[in-house]
Amino acid sequence: MTLTANRGTLVEPSGTSERTAIAMALGFIGIDSGTAQGNCPAVWIDDEKKEVLFQGWKADDETKAVCVTDSPQAESEGIVRLPYRMVELIRRVRDEAEGS
């Protein structure tokens, strides 16, 4: 089953209606243009929750240790790395948010 989200198409594998509701709330913005089609950094927006979702490379322990000195990390939080070339996608998120 293919679901059309606000700004992209999401493919729904077998799942529950709750998963379908979540998928429909997310709008796919794009992926890192510098990587292959799979396993690459990506950006989504959730219009209902007014949030941005990032998929990126997990930060190593040394990087996380430096980051938490500026902003302590909750158990439910994580630090990911995104390449500079994704700035344009992040600007699209800003434009979408300002249009909401």
Rank of each mutant, 00 (worst) to 15 (best):
Thr2Ala: 05
Thr4Ala: 13
Ala5Arg: 06
Asn6Met: 11
Arg7Tyr: 15
Glu12Tyr: 14
Pro13Ile: 08
Pro13Asp: 12
Thr16Ile: 01
Ser17Asn: 07
Glu18Pro: 00
Arg19Tyr: 08
Ile22Arg: 09
Ile22Asp: 02
Ile22Pro: 01
Ala25Trp: 02
Ile29Asp: 08
Gly30Glu: 08
Asp32Arg: 02
Asp32Tyr: 04
Asp32Met: 05
Ser33Ala: 12
Ser33Tyr: 05
Cys40Tyr: 01
Pro41Leu: 07
Ala42Ile: 01
Trp44Val: 00
Trp44Arg: 01
Trp44Phe: 14
Ile45Met: 10
Asp46Arg: 07
Asp46Phe: 09
Asp46Ile: 06
Lys49Pro: 00
Val52Thr: 14
Leu53Gln: 04
Phe54Gly: 03
Phe54Gln: 02
Trp57Ile: 15
Ala59Lys: 05
Ala59Cys: 15
Ala59Trp: 07
Thr63Asn: 02
Val68Lys: 06
Thr69Gln: 13
Thr69Phe: 04
Thr69His: 02
Gln73Phe: 00
Ser76His: 12
Ile79Val: 14
Ile79Pro: 02
Ile79Leu: 08
Val80Tyr: 09
Pro83Met: 08
Arg85Tyr: 01
Arg85Pro: 00
Arg85His: 03
Met86Glu: 03
Glu88Thr: 09
Leu89Asp: 04
Ile90Ser: 06
Ile90Arg: 03
Ile90Gly: 05
Val93Gly: 06
Arg94Thr: 10
Asp95Val: 07
Asp95Cys: 00
Glu98Ala: 10
Gly99Ile: 01
Ser100Lys: 14
